[in-house]
Nucleic acid binder design. Structure first.
Lengths: 241, 241
DNA sequence: GCGCGAAAAATTGCATGCAACACCTGGAGT
DNA sequence: ACTCCAGGTGTTGCATGCAATTTTTCGCGC
């Protein structure tokens, strides 16, 4: 099936749907799509990522698929075994614990730096963001709260004024997203999460660096134990198949 | 120039860095080689990475080169612009500062965790390693000290018992290597570095977590200011030779 | 002389084909 | 029955070719 570059290409459109620039390469687009599929759980951990199957699925050849897989391999979302194909990265319980510890530490570090170096404007925005989340927590909408939660933590990363740490925190957050999301559906977790955010935000706004560090570390560690509780109850189902 | 798969392949050097199999693909080998060339300064920051040139240089086709470049792009060593080729990542002074801050924070975190969770054996080994460095510092051999220094910091990473943080610390360390190495040649820096290590090691061995954190943060921050002093004197030449 | 636009050259992006390795299946030997 | 090995099959790895897009060069008008 020669697809030929001259043939009509789907996305060839001028302004590109969903705001995506056509300036991105297929490999990048694929990396994003596959990452999305993994993070949302559409691709279960451990499932094989057949190059040809993915190529047909996304209407491209194997070459950009391979490039995307290698890219995702570096970021840790998929595991590429030398001549044995790629699989969605399987996180063992120990690795999950390490990921959570790492995220807690990085986020806490970001919080400390943010307390030291956020601008007045950034502090006001963080405050406003936290306030707006109170309603969501009361309303009890896990999905909406999860989105706002991402924004809140993102604001803290940004406030650290360190793109290296912020990028790392974001990548950890993405890798843990499937596990974190579930815990928002646990009764009462929303309100407690919001309370913990309040402690973090207050410390950052007041510039109390060590306190911000401790509060964020505690917050993320609590998320971890919440997730571990979930996993303990659903042992064995995580890996799928 | 059809090279055929049957041609003699070097078979890999078995560098044994982290237990890699000999079955590495060309793309992986290339990623390693190119990364090495960048880290050692053979490829200056900002230089274009022409796919065909690299392919000829390493005796392969453009396909594995492209895969390697994309891999390096994700790890941050290389910047890949969508249709405009790849260049060795240019670190501006600000980014360099951010990298150092990030490394300082991560290393400090590792030190704190190490103080909390190193095994008695690991503690003894760290102590022995530090002792052996005293001679090197006195002898004033920058290269030998640099190697031992890497081992010392590596022991701290390992002692944190968190591969996620350890891997990140290692990748930051690699990215900063060209800049850090120079400062060991500054007169007196070796002895001072060893003294700082002593404070870090003592805190870790005694299990004083917060002290270990503070000592490591201070140590790496001092390295940073030392490097900045060097850069200030050699403005603009940063990439070169 | 200088900016501007179009053709030419260079370079990237992707599709395809072929060879080597990994896995699976079936049979023989112990 | 179990292990071991040979053959077949599927998948990955890489080389190559072509189309599209940059970048460069050159000619033209101002």
């Amino acid at each position: 099936m020669r697809q030929g570059r001259g043939a009509v290409r789907d996305g060839g459109g001028m302004d590109g749907r969903s705001g995506e620039r056509s300036g991105r390469t297929q490999a990048e687009r694929l990396a994003g799509e596959i990452a999305e599929a993994i993070v949302t759980g559409a691709l279960a951990p451990g499932s094989r990522l057949d190059e040809q199957a993915l190529a047909e699925r996304y209407g491209v050849s194997r070459t950009p698929v391979r490039e995307a897989l290698r890219q995702l391999g570096t970021s840790g979302l998929v595991e590429v075994r030398p001549r044995r194909g790629a699989v969605v990265a399987q996180v063992t319980a120990e690795q999950l614990a390490e990921l959570f510890v790492a995220m807690a530490e990085i986020e806490a570090t970001c919080a400390r730096l943010a307390a030291q170096s956020m601008s007045p404007l950034e502090r006001r925005r963080l405050d406003a963001l936290h306030d707006s989340m109170a309603d969501l927590a009361r309303a009890g909408d896990p999905a909406a709260y999860a989105r706002a939660n991402t924004a809140f933590h993102g604001a803290v990363y940004a406030g650290a004024h360190n793109t290296v740490l912020a990028d790392f925190a974001l990548s950890l957050r993405r890798r843990l997203q499937p596990y974190r999301e579930a815990q928002f559906r646990v009764a009462g977790r929303l309100a407690r999460s919001h309370d913990e955010h309040g402690v973090v935000a207050a410390a950052i706004l007041a510039g109390r660096a060590e306190e911000a560090h401790a509060a964020m570390l505690r917050h993320v560690t609590l998320v971890e134990s919440s997730v571990e509780g979930l996993l303990a109850r659903a042992t064995g189902e995580a890996g799928g198949a």
